[in-house]
Amino acid sequence: MKLTNRFLGILAEAWLPVALIVLWWLASAGSTSLYFPPLAEIVSVGVRDITEGPLLSYAAFSLTNLAAGLAIAIVVGVVAGVILGSSQRLRDAVNPYLQFIRSVPQVALVPLIIGALGIGALPKIWSISFACVWPVLLNTIDGVKGIDTALTDFSKSYRLSKRTHVLDMVLPAALPQIVPGVRTALAIGVIVMVVSEIYGADSGLGYYILQSGRNFAVAETWAGTILVGLLGYLLSRLFEIFEHFALRWHRESSAQARRG
């Protein structure tokens, strides 16, 4: 009985997506339209370029840039966030500049960075990390700022070292705010990744989409677009799973607090 329930649950969520894919498949089957090639063709072209073509190495290029950019953003954002979060005076002094710079639409900087530094991997990593650092930084500041003064008092009265205080008290306590910041950063990072590759590159998924579009290889363009979308979805799901485990203590202790 439990198994049938589970099956019904999956069915309730899956029927519409499956129906839409089947509909797309059938409706586009005999398509001669330049813009809407048959789904079957899109899939076969995609599979071909993944197994024999450049798509796999392109995806690797894109994802490494994203990972590197995001990693830099997290390290810089969290370190600067802890410093700014612990000092009201410092915060007051830089706040207007911070508010301004985070309001700059991140893609506006892509031409500048890539234009000046070239089309290799490094400028893309800079672009991504520059775009991703702000949500991490601002959320870390909020998290550190909001830490219960009891924690600081505890560290002082037990004379914990600065290092222990930051690593074992401040960071875990701010984590519930830091993690959503990283989630936002991930979404922005994927956008900047694609933009930077469309703007100027000789590799990467954005480059593949752009080139195939320019060559009117529309099936390839669709295949690349779908692949990027699926990757975006996959990354956000993976992050959700990570979040689920990383913040388990937070979720359960606040559920406990609600129960009273």
Binding site: Y35, V190, M193, I198, I209, L210, R214, T225, G232, S236
Partner: peptide
């Protein structure tokens, strides 16, 4: 979670 900007060439 779809990077919509990737649809631009299409």
């Amino acid at each position: 979670s779809w990077p919509i900007i990737a649809l631009m060439p299409v």
